[in-house]
């Protein structure tokens, strides 16, 4: 087995030997359901689509993904096990990617467990299943982007609570980057061209296109690039701070 897979397997195992996995999945599924049916007005819309469901996914991730990502590295640094991991014949990249993959697969599993809602909408009407699949992909990518950010913040902190809060704040800003909420704040000091660039970096804008079922390669590439960049940053931070 390659070290990369060994690390991913150990990490994924860790979720299920502690109560983390079960608590996370139950809370995620219950909240997804409540938000879709009560706040989203799934029935009242009388439309055979899952926009009521996917519209709330980014907000759920904003709260729950940092709870998964906060322990990725902070826990290793706190307990000192990072010294054990980094002195195995394992490259930094194998460790960073292995841990990220495990967390991403875990969230992917939680996401896939929302399939009853997909069955429900197919039972009630005839939705565009291609669009739903695209929206699932968008949710998965968005979760991956939040995880990659969380991974980097977790690498920079020993304290999991601090990592959790900073990750939420960072994800919120990046999620809302295309909206007046963030842009108005920045437009006072930054030139218009920079503001434009920042507006294009907003996660929610790219997510909304995809979640409506528009399979745009640029949006997918955006999320892949965000994930790659933050994972690279994770490796850099770890290299600098692992022994502190």
């Amino acid at each position: 087995m390659s070290p990369f897979l060994a690390i991913a397997k150990r990490e994924l195992d860790g979720y299920f030997t502690t109560p983390i996995a079960y608590i996370f999945i139950v809370i995620y599924l219950v909240l997804s359901g409540l938000l879709t049916f009560y706040l989203g007005g799934f029935y009242e819309k009388e439309q055979a689509d899952l926009s009521a469901f996917f519209g709330f996914q980014p907000w759920l991730y904003l709260l729950l993904v940092p709870a998964v990502s906060m322990r990725l590295w902070a826990e290793e640094r706190q307990s000192g096990s990072i010294e054990l991991l980094m002195t195995l014949p394992v490259t930094l990249w194998q460790a960073v990617l292995g841990k990220f993959l495990a967390a991403w697969l875990f969230i992917g599993l939680a996401l896939s467990l929302t399939f009853p809602i997909w069955i429900t909408v197919n039972y009630l009407g005839s939705p565009d299943n291609g669009a739903i699949l695209t929206a699932y992909l968008a949710s998965f990518l968005m979760a991956g982007a939040f995880l990659a950010i969380g991974s980097c913040v977790s690498a920079a902190n020993r304290n999991q609570v601090v990592a959790f809060i900073i990750t939420i704040a960072l994800c919120f800003i990046l999620m809302m980057a295309g909206f007046p909420l963030v842009l108005d704040l920045l437009s006072a000091w930054l030139p218009a061209s920079v503001i434009n660039a920042i507006a294009n970096l907003g996660f929610l804008i790219h997510f909304q296109d995809l979640s409506k079922g528009v399979l745009e390669l640029a949006d997918i590439a955006f999320f892949v690039l965000v994930i790659g960049t933050w994972l690279y940053a994770t490796a850099v931070v770890l290299d600098l701070k692992k022994a502190e």
């Binding site: 070290p3 060994a6 150990r10 054990l84 394992v90």
Partner: peptide, 22 residues
């Protein structure tokens, strides 16, 4: 201080080390 992965059992832990060492 011999840091370890506390939630694992020694058997799983040693298997992990063996896997990571190919």
């Amino acid at each position: 201080g011999a840091p370890l992965y506390g939630e694992m059992t020694p058997l799983k832990f040693l298997r992990f080390i063996a896997d990571a060492r190919k």
